[in-house]
């Protein structure tokens, strides 16, 4: 018990938790934005892969790190547009369309990567984002090392939490996005475009998801690996429900999740001799299911989630 307490009080533990949480923060925010507008985006897993591949590839081709971030976001938005067109004006099944996007986006990424680099045996590396070293702030007790061992992308993810919260709760646009996810008829009656709002929200959300993927290849690692996303997208879909579609709770959920993941890595070194390593590997997925089970009953789903809306049909 003392050991666990020591781990929980250490700066390096919380620093690792925030690092592990970063792609999830992007992903949960992205899924939240899509679902707030009434569209479930199961393309998330594939869009993570696209973000990871495109971001890395852009940097590798010489676009610079922020060029890579931009490229990843644009690629994500493009797949968001595809999902948006299929599910919003065409009103196709959001489940099947999302899965189709995931299959299409990941196979396209893998095919492009293999076609661009047919012969490499070990994946080529880029110079990833480095931890920000902000003078004075770094010297703050506890918070300094936790926050300022992170790269710029982690700060970007925290900024996005604020941004999404602000837009959803403090702006007319946010009111419209939430309304289109609850009662599209009321939005239509006000002369706003239901299609436009939903597609834009899905595109913006998908861009955020792609940033989660880009973090993996441009900050957490420095290369693209097959299967590196490894279910993170699906975990985000569970976390959104856990967070009850609130950006602040989404941040909390992602960090708790990161903390749990960081803890299991450390516990593994403590008790690894007695417990099979697979127990720790499976823990994040089990935790997600558990979070879903306890949260699902009292979750306040956006009322028009999964329901297509057609102009002129009430």
């Amino acid at each position: 018990m003392i050991e666990i307490l020591q781990i929980l009080l250490s700066e390096s533990f919380w620093s690792a938790s925030l690092r592990i949480a970063t792609p999830l923060i992007f992903g949960v925010l992205g899924a939240l934005l899509c679902e707030k507008s009434g569209v479930l985006n199961l393309g998330i897993e594939g869009i993570f892969v696209v973000g990871a591949m495109v971001g890395w590839m852009a940097v590798w081709l010489g676009a610079g790190l922020w060029g890579g971030v931009l490229a990843a976001a644009l690629a994500g938005a493009l797949f968001g547009l595809l999902h948006g067109i299929l599910t919003v004006p065409l009103g196709l099944s959001q489940h099947v369309s999302g899965l189709a996007i995931t299959l299409f986006a990941s196979s396209l990424s893998y095919f492009s990567y293999r076609t661009a680099l047919p012969t490499v045996s070990s994946p080529p590396r880029i110079d990833p984002f480095q931890p920000l070293d902000i003078p004075i702030l770094t010297n703050l007790p506890f918070l300094g090392p936790v926050l300022f061992q992170q790269t710029a992308l982690t700060f970007l993810s925290l900024f996005c939490v604020l941004l999404v919260w602000y837009v959803l709760n403090k702006t007319a646009l946010g009111v419209a996005i939430k309304a289109v996810g609850d009662n599209p008829n009321s939005v239509d009656a006000q002369g706003l475009s239901v299609y436009g709002l939903r597609i834009s929200a899905v595109m913006a959300g998908s861009a955020l998801m792609a940033l989660g993927g880009a973090f993996l290849t441009m900050s957490a690692f420095d290369a693209f690996f097959f299967g590196m996303v490894n279910g993170r997208g699906w975990i985000c879909i569970a976390l959104v429900i856990f967070a009850s579609w609130r950006p602040g709770k989404a941040l909390l959920g992602a960090i708790l999740f990161g903390a749990f993941d960081a803890l299991q890595v450390r516990l593994q070194t403590e008790v690894g001799a007695f417990v099979p390593s697979q127990v720790f590997l499976a823990a994040p997925y089990l935790l997600s299911i558990f979070a879903l089970v306890i949260a699902a009953r009292r979750a306040e789903y956006p009322r028009a989630l999964l329901t297509p809306w057609f102009k002129g049909q009430r």
């Binding site: 879909i237 299911i289 699902a296 009953r297």
Partner: peptide, 15 residues
């Protein structure tokens, strides 16, 4: 529990 089977079956694949 109303737990969405899409998410649980996807996560169970990994488990």
């Amino acid at each position: 529990f109303d737990a969405d089977e899409v998410v649980t079956t996807l996560l169970l694949n990994f488990i």
